[in-house]
Amino acid sequence: MKLVVNGNSYEVPCPADTPLLWALREEVGLTGTKFGCGKALCGACTVHVDGEPKRSCVTPCGDVVDKAIITIEGLVRDSVLHPVQQAWVEENVPQCGYCQAGQIMTAVVLLRAKPQPTDAEIDDAMSANLCRCGTYPRIRKTVHRAAELLAAAPPAVTK
């Protein structure tokens, strides 16, 4: 089966019902996307599929063949961080860091739809992404910071 991840094509030997998460981690070799719950309850495994945030732990590979899949690694261009990642670093968001790929992937989609989100819109978009370390106050603040960075220098779009 063919997966298009971060602009590259991969032939993966998984049956169609294999969760995308494991195909990404074990067959494509991109481990930035994390396993937290396996039941669409935590958001650690969030990736973009055709620009939409998807829980890769419950997304069968068969559903995303030939669709544009973007992972956390795909946000980085020539070693330059995406503005949302940059904001995350500036504000010292990560503690253990395990949830942060999912948080960032969700925030990127939010900021595309709402370039200047309110706190309530941030809460709405981000409330299904869990963080055991409790980085929420910083995430809320940092999404605003990311909005500023994005307004100043929008990133190129990966297809």
Binding site: L30, T31, G32, I72, W88, V89, P94, Q100, A101
Partner: peptide, 28 residues
């Protein structure tokens, strides 16, 4: 100091947690 030295690796997907370990000849 007002920054963390581990922030970058934890936002770009390169941080290696236990679950990301891979060693030669490994099975799961």
């Amino acid at each position: 100091v007002d920054r963390r030295i581990d922030a970058r690796a934890k936002v770009d997907g390169t941080a290696q947690f236990g679950i990301d370990v891979s060693v030669p000849n490994m099975v799961n």
